[in-house]
Simulated scan of single mutants.
Amino acid sequence: MPKVGMREIRRAQLIDATLESIDQAGMSGTTLATVAQRARISTGIVSHYFGGKDALLEATMRHVLRDLGAAAQRRLKAARPQPRARLRAIVAANFDVSQVSGPVMKTWLAFWAESMHVPALRRLQHVNTRRLYSNLCAEFGKAMPRTAARRAASGLAAMIDGLWLRGATTGEPFDTKAALRLANDYIDLLLDTHASARARQRA
């Protein structure tokens, strides 16, 4: 009789091993066997819990995305209610320590590449992209009309992805402060420009 909670413990152990394997060997060098070896269990147990490599990567990315969601909730809860502060909180969540460690960044890159070929991963990527866009739209929408808010959300989402991708591919530790500074400057530019235009219209 398996111990209560053993399934969750085993899955967490295998997800950690997957992150380590992708970090050290890349996606092409990561197999059920290498994950099993790092977790010090049999390959059959990995197959039992995940079935195959795609399912294992999907579970690993769901874990990373849960960390991202938790970081966003934590930062939004602590932020002031104004759109500027909440937008900065969303940005900060995307550059949270849980998202910029070496293993996680390499797993994100592998996930993006694989999502172009694996439908389940593509759906997961679509959900993540839509969630970020929706959250940004909601906050920009408190400060500007819907069309402008959508455009601003698209621009900021692209900037977040671009800063993250550039940082991930430098081979150096991620410069979180620089990324935050650039993204926050963009938020300030959008909000201040809109506020100035609105003030001119009222004058």
Rank of each mutant, 00 (worst) to 15 (best):
L76G: 01
A72D: 05
Q73P: 00
M61S: 10
A71S: 12
Q201D: 14
M105F: 03
V46R: 05
L14M: 15
A158W: 02
A143F: 02
V46I: 11
G52R: 11
A158I: 04
I160D: 14
T147I: 10
L76C: 02
E114K: 13
Q201P: 06
L14D: 07
L109N: 01
R202G: 04
R146C: 09
L19R: 14
P103E: 09
L76R: 10
G29N: 04
A89I: 02
A39M: 03
S115T: 12
M116Y: 08
R10M: 15
A157W: 06
P119Y: 15
K77A: 07
R80Y: 09
L121V: 09
Q13F: 03
P81E: 12
T31G: 05
A79M: 02
S42V: 00
T60G: 00
S115K: 15
P81Q: 06
R200I: 04
E20R: 00
S154T: 11
A149H: 12
R86V: 00
S47M: 06
E114D: 14
A143M: 06
L132D: 09
R151L: 03
A199I: 08
R74N: 12
Q13T: 05
V4Q: 07
A89F: 11
L109S: 01
D185E: 13
L189P: 03
A158S: 15
A120I: 07
W108Y: 09
R166K: 13
R62N: 14
A71L: 08
Q73D: 10
S154N: 12
L68Q: 08
T170R: 05
P145R: 10
A149P: 06
W112S: 08
E139H: 01
Q125A: 13
D23Y: 05
S196E: 12
T129F: 05
R200N: 02
A36Q: 06
W112R: 13
C137E: 15
K53I: 14
E172R: 12
H117P: 10
G171P: 09
V104M: 12
L191E: 12
I15M: 09
G29S: 07
Y49S: 10
T169S: 12
R181G: 00
L182W: 04
A120N: 07
K77D: 12
N135I: 00
A158R: 13
R7E: 12
R74S: 14
A59E: 07
G171S: 02
T169F: 03
S154C: 07
F140S: 14
M6I: 13
K3H: 10
Q125K: 04
L32R: 06
L191Q: 10
Q201I: 10
N184I: 03
E58T: 00
